[in-house]
Design a binder for these strands. Structure first.
Lengths: 205, 205
DNA sequence: TTTAAATTCCCCTTTTTAGGGGAGCCCGTT
DNA sequence: AACGGGCTCCCCTAAAAAGGGGAATTTAAA
């Protein structure tokens, strides 16, 4: 029997996956957790073979949790689970010890296949995910904001002008202007409006 | 028998909810859709009593879909479903004809209760949601964008200048300028940057 | 039908951004 | 010690936005 445990903050998904796995005779459901604290508590008395882990956990993020887990319990195989198909996140998860990665639109069949494959020691990535990773070779990963840039960008987004920002940060206006121009260039957008849209929608600020 | 249909882009949640409802003798699962197009197709031949609707649908947003649905099929009762607990979104859903609202961390029991209550004509909001709505009483409800304003704002957010937008919409530059100024005034922000931030984070565009 | 809101267009001036440069300083890595 | 990236500051001009008005037409709602 493959002992499976799940951590996800959404009760609906926990119960959903539980019933998806119930039919299978090889899989044994050992429980679920909604928070990392719950998880640690359960692991003391009950070590699963496989841990299904939602990445979008509130508070702690799945990536850190994943690496901590593979330190403390290297035998537990982690399968990442998320609704987002952000390549960067998936990559980070795989680097931090996840053996497989599924999107939440994966089917029952796919879920079970993934669990069994991982149990055999194989890796598993669903088609969509592998496509994402593949197409991501010419990775259009977003430029990274430096500390100062982020600071300036947040103030721009709050409606301050270069002059006002300069006063606030005790800098020269031209400096702020440089940062603004740099950001517009590095993100390859046409103006501030587009920059803000990108930054907000990509959660850079 | 209560006929229940679901629209959600995540296969896992569809299948999860399906198996949550399977046991119940009063509830009959009539199918699922992953896109609005799928939904419309199904509805032609098969009208459910209750539609479980995920708000965070890609492409179309659940709020518009909801209002369109209550126009075309006023008999179908919509239960909103989402992982986000943003008061503004929940309120909009309720305004647009949703009879109930559940978070994805709702339990099996809660889901079934909600379905049955809504079927009886009662409204249902889970505790968390009602708390959210309550604490949000001193709501600083956002101004509404008119059709034209939204159109213009989207183009602004894409980095077009007034002149470019005017050409695109076959309007005079001063018109676009007026719209921009109006929006800045009505949203009480200082400039375009702040306007875009607000619009993106409040999902107005 | 009356009224309010939406949409369109126009004037003016000042401020702010955009776009093109260049350059020196600090700091961590090589 | 040399290099690059981040950060700072400076020049210039042209374009765009902000801020202040006003006003006519359409359209939808009361």
């Amino acid at each position: 029997m493959i002992k499976v445990f799940i951590i996800d903050d959404h009760e609906m998904i926990i119960q959903g996956i539980k019933s998806l796995l119930e039919d299978d005779t090889e899989i044994h459901w050992t429980g679920s957790a909604k928070t990392p604290a719950d998880l640690w508590r359960h692991l003391k008395s009950n070590k699963p073979d496989i841990l299904l882990m939602d990445i979008n956990l509130p508070e702690t993020n799945g990536i850190e949790l994943c690496s901590k887990l593979s330190e403390l319990y290297p035998d537990i195989r982690v399968i990442g689970l998320s609704s987002s198909d952000q390549p960067s996140i998936i990559k980070k998860m795989m680097k931090n010890g996840a053996k497989a990665y599924l999107l939440k639109d994966a089917s029952k069949h796919e879920l079970i296949t993934a669990i069994k494959k991982v149990m055999k020691g194989e890796a598993y990535v669903n088609y969509t995910v592998s496509e994402i990773l593949k197409h991501n070779k010419p990775e259009r990963s977003l430029p990274v904001l430096t500390r100062r840039e982020k600071e300036v960008l947040e103030l721009i987004a709050d409606g301050l002008t270069n002059t006002e920002i300069a006063e606030k940060l005790f800098l020269n206006v031209t400096t702020i202007d440089s940062h603004r121009k740099n950001m517009i260039t590095k993100f390859d957008v046409k103006n501030t409006a587009a920059l803000i849209k990108l930054a907000v929608s990509e959660k850079l600020i």
